[in-house]
Amino acid sequence: MEFFDSHTKLFSAAFLLFLVLTLFVAIMPAINNDRNNAALPGEEMLSEEAVKGKALFIANGCVACHTQQVRNVEMDKMWGKRPSLAADYASNRRIDLWRNTATLMGTERTGPDLTTVGSRQPSKEWNLVHLFNPRIVVKESIMPAYPWLFEFKNEAANEDIVVSIPEKYSAGQGVLVAKREALQLVAYLQSLKQTDVPQGQAIAFLYKKQQNITDESVTVSSVADGDALYATHCQACHQANGEGLKGAFPALKGRPIVADDNPELMLNIIMNGYDARPEFGVMPAVGKNSDLKPEEVAAIMNHERGSWGNNARKVTPEEVQKLLDRIKNLPNQ
């Protein structure tokens, strides 16, 4: 054909087709998105420290393994209260002259999603130990260690943040102190939370699990699995053997609060967190943050009360529900 024998015509045609399609699927939607979306009114701006922490997050390529998006499907419910919205990313702007915007949505979940890690795992102590070497707190983890964010000192100065790690990891090198960078990175991680949507929950998750009442196996699995819930919510600090980590996270094994016949204090700590003992890290409000249901809390409590030699009486979801109603009226501990 005459048309295709002219290189100017042929390649102009190909170029124009490609350009029009590009405008349609990339440039126009991108511009439109910026025009039509703004941050939610309640969104907190990143602190100066957190901004520097985000830069470290980017520099070390954390996005290669950690997503920051809760998809609008049921299976992602474990990562956030609601699906992520365009508004959640709207305040992201170009970092500086050299670097592009970083929405850090990610495409790979080799490690957990971090959208709400600030509320799921707010403990500074845990995060620092975990960054120094993740295998101290999660022995199955394959996350890289970041020892260059820390330094060993013979003696910690007053303003130094000391990180207590097991002997095996310090190996007589002195006291482990978090560098400024480590604190900045933790500040960024702590800032990762979902902003509440005004007027409550409006967005639903898709692909809900179908509950088939006639099928026996489903009804069995709908009874909360204490083992799994413990692994998801508690194990990172208190460890699978319930022994915690010395100097960082208390043991649950043989602990009077856990074994107490009256489960009220234990329930209160699970729901609202705990910070009464200076030698241990702060316990986050696990129950509230993760929006745990009474039967799930009961399952966790029964797992803790019945494992590692603990032998306290079981609690029922109804009892937990009753206590929860009472705790609601109490001031936070």
Binding site: A30, Y89, A90, T101
Partner: peptide, 29 residues
Amino acid sequence: IISAIIFAIVISIVAYVPIWQNGLGETIV
């Protein structure tokens, strides 16, 4: 071959021009 080079240049320009990279624009691009 020649179209591939033309398109690669277009793609790189679209990917690195900052005008349309705010918020989710970055993800779309």
